[in-house]
């Protein structure tokens, strides 16, 4: 029962919808491309999909779906130019796929307030869809990691480059730190300790997440026990994108081992998506890859991930 508590809470939160949040810390690693193609493939399986561009500062998911100028965006709703949430959801030419565009040049929307975030989430909870696919912004800030934590499936996209792997690790570490801060939200001195010790510029040098918990456990065993139980129920899904050589095929697997060893997070490796030389061509042609290049290895790999995890009741 306890093992399923996390999922039960998420189901209470989201109803029957399944929420997939796609992050990874680094920009330009294919998060938006994976989000858009994943949504299209889910749509082809007769699922109702709402694709959410959560990158409010540099939204471009609409372009990847062939929409040059989105008629309405989140900005219209948050500034109350459009009163009804459903009215800002755009229909796309792909069966079953709708888009909530984050397109905005308004600086104040780069970091929406807590109230604005709650307003968006409440409407997403009510929205009629089988799947909500959230394309998270680059970076490891609050907005990205919070959406990631709330989803049923938190998907970390990485590519076999040291910068991407480093950012993906930081992304997951920040997610845990944020959860830890929430667990200690009533204890100001502990919050200050966590914030200081997790700052890489702190004079004592870096401290391992595990060691931080050992320190906290001495004074607050109950809270740390609760926290450990909570993260033991978390599962993170890993996808390696732009994989070219055999030597790179094992990178995601080894990355999962480091995450498990140092962050105690359970990772499931969803698989490798191959490097596709024609991907750039598709972006320029503002046509999703799975539409322009049918039956590619990329499409087959993505389809396999969908069937083995996202639409499989057994795994869910």
């Amino acid at each position: 029962m306890a093992a399923n508590l996390c999922l039960i809470l998420k189901m209470m939160y989201w109803g029957n919808k399944k929420v997939i949040a796609i992050g990874g810390g680094k920009g330009g690693i294919g998060k938006s491309i994976i989000s858009s193609n994943l949504a299209i493939l889910l749509g082809r399986m007769n699922k109702k999909v709402l694709l959410v561009d959560a990158d409010l500062g540099a939204a471009n998911l609409h372009t990847l779906l062939g929409i040059r100028f989105p008629q309405y965006t989140l900005e219209d709703y948050l500034t109350e130019r459009i009163k009804t949430f459903d009215d800002i959801v755009l229909k796309t030419r792909f069966t079953g796929v709708s888009l909530l565009s984050g397109a905005s040049d308004i600086l104040s929307l780069l970091n929406p307030t807590f109230k604005e975030r709650q307003k968006i989430i409440r409407n997403l909870q009510k929205f009629d869809a089988d799947f909500i696919v959230i394309d998270l912004p680059a970076g490891t800030h609050m907005q990205a990691v919070d959406f990631f934590s709330m989803a049923h499936f938190g998907l970390v996209v990485l590519e076999p480059t040291p910068t991407s792997l480093e950012n993906a690790f930081s992304f997951l570490k920040n997610m845990l730190l944020r959860k830890l801060l929430k667990a200690f939200h009533r204890n100001v001195s502990v919050r200050v300790f966590i914030e200081e010790i997790s700052d890489p510029r702190n004079p004592k040098g870096t401290i391992r997440f595990k060691d931080m918990l050992i320190e906290l456990e001495k004074e607050h065993p109950e809270i740390v026990k609760f926290f450990k139980e909570e993260i033991a129920r978390e599962t993170v899904y890993i996808v390696a994108n732009s994989v070219e050589h055999d030597a790179q095929k094992n990178v995601a697997n080894k990355f999962a081992m480091v995450v498990n060893e140092y962050l105690n997070l359970h990772c499931i490796l969803l698989g490798n998506l191959p490097f596709e030389p024609k991907m750039k061509e598709c972006v320029v042609a503002i046509t999703p890859f799975v539409e322009k290049i049918p039956d590619s290895l990329f499409e087959k790999s993505l389809q396999h991930m969908i069937e083995s995890v996202f639409t499989s009741d057994k795994k869910f």
Partner: peptide, 15 residues
């Protein structure tokens, strides 16, 4: 550059 300054090169994942 790696012959002269191998310290400054990022490692190649998978190698």
């Amino acid at each position: 550059e790696d012959a002269a300054a191998s310290e400054s090169i990022l490692p190649i994942p998978g190698t």
